[in-house]
């Protein structure tokens, strides 16, 4: 016990660097525990992680552009040509 090395607590810079791996489930359990311990006491990193989550959610809501009727007609015309050749 006396000789057991304790890993240094995370600083904010390290915490931010680990966040994607954390969200991806790619951290070792010890790194995950250290990150969660840091988040429990650091409002700035907690805010940052929340913003990353919002960023991901916002990206997931980007709608594709509409396809114009003309562009669709052109592609369907090409489809007929492709099928004939």
């Amino acid at each position: 016990m006396f000789f057991r090395r304790r890993r240094r607590a995370l600083v904010c810079r390290d915490a931010v660097a680990l966040m994607t791996d954390y969200l991806e489930g790619a951290l070792t359990s010890s790194d995950r525990d250290r990150l969660e311990a840091h988040l429990a006491t650091c409002p700035h990193c907690t805010e940052y992680l929340a913003q990353i989550r919002v960023t991901i959610a916002a990206a997931g809501r980007v709608e594709p552009d509409d396809l114009s009727a003309d562009a669709l007609d052109d592609l369907v015309a090409l489809y007929h040509r492709w099928r004939e050749t």
């Binding site: 919002v54 960023t55 959610a57």
Partner: peptide, 11 residues
Amino acid sequence: DRVVAGKLAGR
């Protein structure tokens, strides 16, 4: 957060 995310999608 979902409301914010919706508004941010255009950005």
